[in-house]
Design a protein around this nucleic acid. Sequence first.
DNA 1: AAAAATCCCAACCGCCAAACA
DNA 2: TTGTTTGGCGGTTGGGATTTT
Length: 316
Amino acid sequence: MGRSPCCSKEGLNRGAWTAQEDKILCDYIKAHGEGRWRNLPKRAGLKRCGKSCRLRWLNYLRPDIKRGNISPDEEELIIRLHKLLGNRFLFGLTQIIIVSCLVIGHFFLRAGSQSYDFLSSLSLISRWSLIAGRLPGRTDNEIKNYWNTNLGKRHQDHHASDDRSTKLPLDTAKKRAEPVAVRTKALKCSKQVFLKVSRAETPDRLNSNQTSSETRDHQTNMPPGPNPGDSNNGQSSLTNSEDNISADDSMLDFNIGELCLSDLLNFADFSTSLACSSDHQPDVMLYEELETNVGLNMHPFASFLDYYTGEDQWLG
DNA sequence: AAAAATCCCAACCGCCAAACA
DNA sequence: TTGTTTGGCGGTTGGGATTTT
């Protein structure tokens, strides 16, 4: 039967909130604080579902909500965060197996004539709240809507135009533009999950901090390009011709010691990054902050992220 | 000018995990 | 340990606004 609804739907107002309802809700929360949403409508004298009250408050009435258009800076940050965090880290044995298969499959397929963008497909699975958390005053709902109505479309358009430009048959192009059905159910990761990885390292990679982009590119089988510390756009463009990265290499890229991913994801303050000079890329700053504050050499992880998020031209 | 199509976003829904009894 | 409640998430929908025909 499933669980009972959060409240009786009968006799409740639905649809758009009125100014009067907004005022009642605001006044109540100012007086009593947030929380206990189920009982809030009754106590506040609102004919609304508790969940509806919570959503209205969080997405619209909170005093710190920033309204208005998404600025170019914010858009840039959303795009970068979506690339960085949008591939929802999946947890649990099943999810780890699935992701492992996808990662390995990704490299095998890339090694072949055509790369099939599994990881890009995974980007359809997003962490809106996490992204919104890095954009002061913006809500996950707003970010999600913005992505779905603006950026997501551009993403799809870009795939489509790429396919046209490479002269793929139309039906093939269509298939590639369509998301692969790798969709997880909504899954929170509140438990701490640790990646137990060996400490065996490839020193040349780990010491790449001071290496020039050229040497780094050589060491990591990447073509010449900006390294994560460059003030350039950080695009790493691994071409198919250089796909001799083995599955072993891909696993080495996770070699970041025993690291709590949820900590990692929540660590860097991107809002700070946004406030910084615009030539400093947020993801680069994430790596730098992790290195500085957590004491991790992030380059192996960074290079993996850099690699599979490298196809950032899809947003044009 | 009006109808149709499309866009946009607030609100809703169902599911999940943590907290609690 | 088990069942229930609560808060939170991402996906989807409905309807008003805007654009196109």
